[in-house]
Amino acid sequence: MVRLTVDEKEIEAEEGQNLLQVCLENGITVPHLCFLEGMENSPASCRLCFVEIEGMDCPVPSCQTVVHDGMVVNTQSPAVRHLQRSALQLLLSAHRVDCSDCPANKRCALQQLAKLLGIPLKVKHLESLAGEVDTRMGHPLLAYDAGRCVLCGRCLYACAKHQEHPLLTFVRRGFSTRVDFKGKTDPAELPCLACLACVEICPVSALGFAGKTLGAA
């Protein structure tokens, strides 16, 4: 067991655990999108779970930090909050904010994060990039809305967990990166309709059935 201090609160944790997991287990809210509880190796790609650790000169992502004895952590320092707001604003600037038409409304991760970090959903100082994305997907049964997707990768993780041969992957690069299906399997043989783990886990309802309302599952 190791003992650490998070936001002036003393916590005990298993050795080797990652800091984000420990915080969440102890009821300390740390914004995050790409990390899921129990995940062995977080992709550290959403850049939201920053914390400040005494002795380190800049904020670090807590999902990739292993706890150690005597660690002193601040999850809400101004530098941490600044980076988190900046990352969330970037995500929002590439997200089509049409909450009233979105099935994720009221349970959307972005709404919750914006509330937590105290920023509006409309990012004034950045131009909206949501119009630059395209929404085609090669999957015969699923629909994908790249204008909503935050590329957290939860769907890929869920797919890999539930299916022996994962069906989802990231395609293209840079700003054009998106989630897609890269296969030629006969739709009748796809295990997707019986699974839908990806649709379930999407925090922003970017995945759903093809031909039906997105996220209606």
Partner: peptide, 15 residues
């Protein structure tokens, strides 16, 4: 050339 993985590089450099 950004790989598109992390938020700052993917969206930030585009801005």
């Amino acid at each position: 050339e950004s790989c598109g993985k992390c938020t700052f590089c993917r969206i930030g450099t585009r801005h």
